[in-house]
Design a protein around this nucleic acid. Structure first.
Lengths: 142, 142
DNA sequence: GTTCCCCTACTCGGATACACTTTGTCCGAGTATGATCGG
DNA sequence: CCGATCATACTCGGACAAAGTGTATCCGAGTAGGGGAAC
């Protein structure tokens, strides 16, 4: 499983917003905390806002804030908001008779693997990323 | 889960060899059955041979043949022979204090997802890809 | 008939050129707030 | 004192440039089997 830079930044951006609840945070601040360019952060935040994960405020005192509680935002939603749907891909069009069956099986296996990844990512919420004692993730690591 | 074109072709190449047991098959034939260039097929076959999944014969009557039984070759081995080790990747170097914990959790989650994928891919063998009635994969799809 | 040599057909593997996706940057446009000016 | 207008600071989102990675192709080198010539 590999995230893209952008989706990883998106997750951290959401975490940053979660650290400032009930507060409108400018994109510039998010960019600074992630050490990335303001434009890049804005693009990320826009994508998240379009998906309804965060809320954007226009105008002079504008900015972003979390739209739901951290427990209600899964990592899967964040990643899919940025990288698009996370599904199986077998980049092969058609195949001769003897190998077409193998192609199908290949698809089935990849489909299963993708499903596993989706489940794993949907299990982790922003609350888990916050690092509090209530985290369900690190606790299991020991 | 998404394979690259090359790793998908590699899987099909192994299946093709499995369809011709105890027989030395030229790279050219494999290329033809996959409808790809001979050079591309050779590169794939070389990578597989380097990993010991298939055996290469030099010289005039040279070619390739399976080195093990189809049941003993997992899809994971094929994919990793081509695309390299299949592990978690969180492409972020370091992060400010408040977000470093989130980074760690992110890594843990991705690590788990990667592990799931590896398990899924190691469960499928070339024998499953052959499409015989003994396939453990398609049978479960129903 | 045997031996030696060369030719041929294959694999090997590095190098290179191409294509596509991801990433980063820029800029014009829209929007709401606050200040300023005029009534 | 009140309301309209303007300036400001932010988001929006499309377009573009740069970088990185996956993909395809090329070419010289090495290897082993077969055929032919000489002994």
């Amino acid at each position: 499983m590999e995230l893209t830079k952008t989706s990883a930044h998106a997750a951290l951006a959401v975490v940053y917003l979660a650290h400032h609840p009930n507060e409108i945070v400018q994109g510039r601040q998010v960019a600074a905390s992630l050490s990335i360019a303001t434009d890049s952060a804005l693009k990320i935040l826009q994508s998240l806002a379009k998906r309804g994960l965060i809320h954007s405020h226009l105008g002079r005192t504008g900015g972003y804030r979390l739209n739901r509680s951290p427990e209600a935002i899964s990592l899967l939603e964040i990643v899919e908001a940025i990288d698009g749907p996370l599904e199986a891909e077998v980049p092969i069009k058609s195949m001769s008779s003897g190998l077409s069956v193998a192609c199908e099986v290949l698809r089935v296996v990849c489909d299963r693997a993708a499903k596993q990844v989706r489940e794993e990512l949907s299990r982790a919420t922003v609350a888990d990323l916050l690092g509090g004692e209530e985290s369900q993730i690190l606790a299991q690591v020991g």
